[in-house]
Amino acid sequence: MRVFPVYAPKLIVKHARIFLTGVIWVKDLGRLEFEKGRFLLPRKSLPKVKQAILELNELIEAQN
């Protein structure tokens, strides 16, 4: 598990694309899981977490 002390979308996306499957922890967002290079949306999450995951997945799609 990698810990990101700040929310840096480009760096987080780079990590997810390299490792494809895993878990990261982002300060103020908490634990985020990714599989096959995409972030998974938890069943229950705060609106800011949901927005961050959608933003990260959009960045991943834009890079493909």
Rank of each mutant, 00 (worst) to 15 (best):
G37R: 04
K50E: 06
I18T: 14
L32P: 01
K10S: 14
T21E: 13
I12F: 03
K44T: 09
L29A: 02
E33G: 09
L59E: 06
H15N: 03
K10F: 14
R31P: 04
E61R: 12
E61G: 10
L56P: 01
V26G: 00
K27F: 10
E33Y: 15
I18P: 02
L59M: 13
K44W: 11
L56G: 03
E33K: 15
K48W: 10
L11Y: 05
F39N: 00
E35C: 08
L59N: 04
I12V: 04
P47F: 05
L41P: 08
G22S: 03
L29S: 01
A62Y: 12
L46Q: 12
A16P: 01
R38F: 14
I53G: 01
L54F: 13
T21P: 02
L32C: 03
L20F: 06
L11R: 07
G30I: 00
G30P: 00
V23S: 07
E55S: 08
N57R: 03
I12R: 00
K44H: 09
Y7G: 02
E61T: 10
K44S: 07
V26A: 03
L32N: 01
G37H: 04
K14Y: 10
F4I: 03
I12Q: 01
A52K: 09
E58T: 12
T21A: 11
E35L: 10
F39D: 00
I18Y: 14
R31W: 05
K48Y: 08
R2W: 15
P42S: 07
V23W: 10
L11G: 06
V26N: 00
F19L: 07
I60N: 04
T21H: 11
A16C: 07
M1E: 15
V13W: 02
E58Y: 09
R38D: 03
K10C: 10
K14P: 04
V26K: 00
K50P: 03
K44R: 12
L29H: 03
V6T: 06
L41S: 10
I18Q: 15
I24W: 00
I12A: 01
P5L: 14
P5R: 14
P47C: 06
V6H: 11
G22T: 02
L54S: 09
T21S: 13
S45V: 12
Y7R: 01
V6S: 05
K50W: 06
I60W: 11
P9D: 03
V6F: 13
E55C: 05
E55Y: 13
D28C: 05
K27Q: 14
P42K: 06
V13C: 05
I60T: 06
M1L: 07
N64K: 04
K36F: 14
G30H: 02
Q63K: 05
I53N: 00
L46Y: 12
L46F: 12
S45D: 07
N64L: 12
P47L: 11
N57M: 02
H15R: 03
F34K: 00
A8M: 13
F4P: 01
I53C: 06
I24E: 00
E33I: 11
R43E: 11
P47Q: 15
E61A: 10
I60L: 13
L32Y: 05
R43P: 05
A52E: 02
N64R: 03
G30T: 01
L59H: 05
L32I: 12
K14V: 08
A16H: 01
L46H: 13
N57Y: 01
V23H: 10
D28F: 11
L11A: 13
E55T: 07
I60D: 03
L56K: 01
I18M: 14
K36P: 04
K27D: 15
V13H: 02
R2Q: 15
V23E: 15
G22R: 02
E58H: 12
E61P: 04
N57H: 02
R2M: 15
A62Q: 11
L54A: 11
L40R: 11
Y7H: 03
Q63P: 09
L46V: 12
K14I: 11
P47Y: 06
L11F: 05
